[in-house]
Design a protein around this nucleic acid. Structure first.
Lengths: 242, 242
DNA sequence: CGAGGTGTTGAAAGTGCTCAAATGGCGTGG
DNA sequence: CCACGCCATTTGAGCACTTTCAACACCTCG
C-alpha cells in the first residue's frame, strides 16, 4: 500500500496532470475518496464550503431550490467533473446545491488546500480558469437552447451530446439516470419530456426502449435539433453544448 | 499630456486597481479608447479575438445567432464590465457576438498583452477567475429564472436589479435601452414584454411612463418576483441576479 | 406634415403545464 | 413461478401562458 486511492484519479485530471508525482501524492493523501448512495444531499446552496469534489464515478445533480420547493436543475455532473470550486469566489459559500442521483464515488478536496493552490500556483489557477471558462461557455449554450429550441429539439441536442459523435450511423446509448431528471435538466416537465421524446422518435426515426436509445443517423438528428442552435453539428469538443 | 486616456478608467477597475502606477501607465498606453455608434458590430462568435474590451460607458449586447438569424441575447454589459476574455480559453476565438446597443466608449486591450498578464501575474489571474466565476454565477441565476419565473416575474426581477436596492420606497429609474432589447435579454417577445409589464404594473402598483419606471415599494415587487427564485430579496451584491 | 422607428393592443394558434389516471417493468414475498 | 405492489413513465384532457401576425398609436425627426 503506497498512496491514497485518490491519487490515481487525480493524476488523470487536467487540473493535476502536470504535477510532480511526490507533490501530488502528498496532496492526494489529504483527499478522501467516498462513495455516496443515490438520494444523498452533498451540500446546499449557501452552505459554507468545506470541500471541492471531483467525480470519480456516478452522477451528481447541481440545482437551486426556492423556499417553496420548486427546483431548477443547473447541471448533472459525471466522471472527471469538478464541483464546489465556485465557492472560492463567493465568500466560501456554495453557489448551488448538490445531490447524488446515481451512486457516486467522489474525491473530496479540503477547501483550504484547494484555495492555497489556486492562490500560489499559477498553472493551477490557469487550469481552473480554463475549467470555469468552459463551464460558463456551456451555460451560454444552455441559455441559448432554452431561448431558441423547443422541447423535442432540446432532447435531440441532449442525446447528441451523450452520443459518440465520431460515429455517424447506428449509434446506441443508455440514458444514465431517470428520464424525469433529464426533463428537469432540460427545463421541462416529465410529461412534456415523454411526449416530446415520442415526437422526436416520430420525426427522426430514433428508437427508444426504456433507457436505451438507438439512433440510425446522427445527421438526421442534428439536422433536426441544430437548426435552432448557433453552433454547427459536430459540436461536442469545439463547444460545450450542441 | 501625461498618460493614455484609458489609464484613469482602468485604474478604477478591480482587475487593475492593485497595480503599480507606472506599470499600469505603460499597460494603458497600449490600450485604445474608442467610441462606437449604436448598431456597430464589435465582433462575431468564433472570430479570432484581437482584443478584450472594458466598457467605459454605453451598452453592449452579447448574443449568439443561428444561421437562420434567430438570436439569443446572453447579456447586456454596461460601464465597468469586461468582455472577450473567454476567448483566452477557446483557442483565441470569441464565444459569442457583440453589438453596440447604445453609443459606447470602450477600452480595447490587445489580447496578447492580456494573455501574457493572465499567464504571468497570479493576482491578475485570480482577479480574472473571480470575474468569470461571478459571471458563471450570474448565468446560473439566469437559467434558474428562465426555468422557474413567468414573464411578469422576470421583468420584476430585472427592474429590481436595475434599482438602487438600498432604498425601499419610491425608487425611480430609467430603462437604459430599448424595451425590445430588454425583452430579448429576458427571453421573451416584445409583445409579451409589453403585456407582462402591464400585468406587473397592475399587480404591484409600479408606474411606467416611457422608459421611466417608478416603484412605490420594492418590497411589493420583490414579494411578487422573488417567490420563484432561490435567493432572497436584497440580492444584488450577494448574488448576481435576483 | 409625413415617414420611420418604437411600443402597444387584438385575436387566434401553439406549446408546454397541471392534474388525474392508466400502463408497464421489476423486485419481493408467498 | 406467480401475484402483488411500488415506482417510473406514459397518456389524456383541459388550461395557462407565450407566440405569431396584424393593425394601430405614439413620438421624433426631417
Amino acid at each position: 500500500m503506497k498512496h491514497s486511492p485518490a491519487f490515481a484519479i487525480l493524476q488523470k485530471h487536467p487540473l493535476f496532470s502536470g504535477w510532480n508525482k511526490d507533490r501530488l501524492k502528498e496532496f492526494a493523501s489529504y483527499c478522501g475518496l467516498h462513495t455516496y448512495a443515490k438520494g444523498k444531499t452533498l451540500f446546499l446552496n449557501e452552505d459554507i464550503a468545506g470541500f471541492c469534489y471531483v467525480v470519480a464515478s456516478g452522477w451528481v445533480k447541481l440545482y437551486r431550490e426556492t423556499s417553496e420547493g420548486h427546483q431548477a436543475v443547473l447541471d448533472i455532473l459525471g466522471a472527471g467533473q469538478l464541483m464546489g470550486e465556485s465557492a472560492l469566489f463567493n465568500e466560501n459559500a456554495y453557489t448551488c446545491s448538490a445531490e447524488i442521483v446515481e451512486e457516486a464515488t467522489l474525491i473530496r478536496i479540503p477547501m483550504p488546500l484547494f484555495k492555497a493552490e489556486a492562490q500560489n500556483n499559477n498553472d493551477f489557477s490557469m487550469g481552473l480558469l480554463k475549467i470555469i471558462a468552459r463551464y460558463a461557455h456551456q451555460q451560454n449554450a444552455d441559455l441559448e437552447h432554452s431561448a431558441l429550441q423547443n422541447a423535442p429539439q432540446r432532447i435531440g441536442c441532449y442525446l447528441l451530446r451523450l452520443a459518440d459523435q465520431t460515429q455517424e450511423k447506428d449509434v446506441t446509448l443508455e440514458i444514465p439516470y431517470d428520464k424525469a431528471l433529464v426533463a428537469a435538466r432540460l427545463g421541462m416537465q416529465p410529461e412534456t419530456f415523454s411526449r416530446a421524446l415520442a415526437k422526436l422518435k416520430n420525426d427522426t426515426g430514433i428508437e427508444v426502449k426504456g433507457a436505451t436509445v438507438s439512433m440510425p443517423s446522427l445527421k438526421v438528428l442534428s439536422d433536426y435539433s441544430c437548426v435552432m442552435c448557433s453552433s454547427d453539428f459536430p459540436c461536442k469538443d469545439k463547444t460545450p453544448g450542441c
